[in-house]
């Protein structure tokens, strides 16, 4: 008779080991087996890397904003009378409109501060990107002074990334106050007068350089945290174009 330690190791057991489902009394046998079979150990190292990558790639999908139809109150098409369902959807539409920006925010746990942050950045964009005569406090002709001044108020050195490669030139910037204190807004404009804004404020939250995306009506924003500042790039551009610019901004700030 063989004891559990002496049974031959199966492929299924190796997977169970990888997934933390192997019974304790088989661990030593699996370890010995992998020591003796480096090619199998190598294959399972690939599987482990795969498993890690699956989580890394797909886990952030949980932070994507939900469409209204996936938020309560849910419609009950299978049961409700048609006019009730219609009334419910109209109600949801009205409520969604009134709740405005925040209703479109992240449903993810632990995200309220970034949700508030991006709402501030978008609100500032709406106000100043439309401003004709005084879009900025300090113009790009005084860029040196502008970034020194804003950096001093934020308590972090600031730079204005070059976005000419994307067709956007710096217009200037301004100091703003949001609920957490001082914030800075840099404005850029392309040859057609289209404007995008880069908004920054100090944050004590840990860095999270994954781009998060939010939108409110036609305004889209990518935001992230890096080097003690929370950043948001906002504009009325499509998601892909804006993400390309956001990547340039990120690279410029880290070069």
């Amino acid at each position: 008779m063989t004891t559990p330690e002496e049974e031959p190791v199966t492929e299924a057991e190796l997977h169970a080991w990888l997934d933390g489902e192997l019974p304790d009394d088989r661990r030593d046998a699996v370890r010995r087996y992998l020591d003796d079979h480096p090619e199998v150990a190598h294959r399972f190292a690939s599987y482990r890397a795969q498993r890690t990558m699956t989580a890394r790639a797909f886990a952030p999908l949980i932070d994507r904003p939900l469409p209204d139809r996936l938020k309560p109150p849910f419609s009950r098409r299978h049961r409700a009378l048609p006019w009730l369902a219609l009334a419910a959807s109209l109600l949801a539409f009205v409520a969604g409109g009134a709740a405005g920006w925040l209703a479109h925010g992240w449903s993810a746990p632990g995200a309220p501060s970034s949700r508030a942050f991006v709402a501030e950045a978008v609100a500032a964009h709406r106000v100043f990107a439309a401003e004709v005569r005084h879009p900025v406090e300090v113009g790009a002709d005084q860029e040196e002074h502008l970034v020194t001044w804003l950096g001093k108020r934020l308590g972090k050195p600031l730079r204005a990334p070059r976005l000419a490669g994307r067709g956007y030139e710096l217009v200037g910037g301004r100091l703003l106050s949001d609920t957490d204190g001082p914030a800075a807004q840099l404005m850029y404009q392309d040859a057609t007068g289209r404007r995008i804004t880069l908004y920054a404020r100090p944050t004590r939250d840990p860095a999270d350089t994954s781009f998060r995306f939010a939108h409110d009506g036609n305004v889209q924003a990518f935001y992230w945290r890096d080097n003690g500042l929370a950043w948001a790039l906002t504009g009325e551009l499509d998601r892909v174009t804006l993400s390309g610019i956001a990547e340039d901004v990120y690279r410029a700030l880290n070069s």
Binding site: M53, R56, L61, S210, F211, F222, E247
Partner: peptide, 19 residues
């Protein structure tokens, strides 16, 4: 591409290939 954008910049190429 969409999924890769939500991951840290250093991971994006690998995430794209993986997805």
């Amino acid at each position: 591409d969409d999924v890769a954008l939500s991951t840290p910049p250093a991971d994006r190429g690998a995430v794209r290939d993986f997805v």
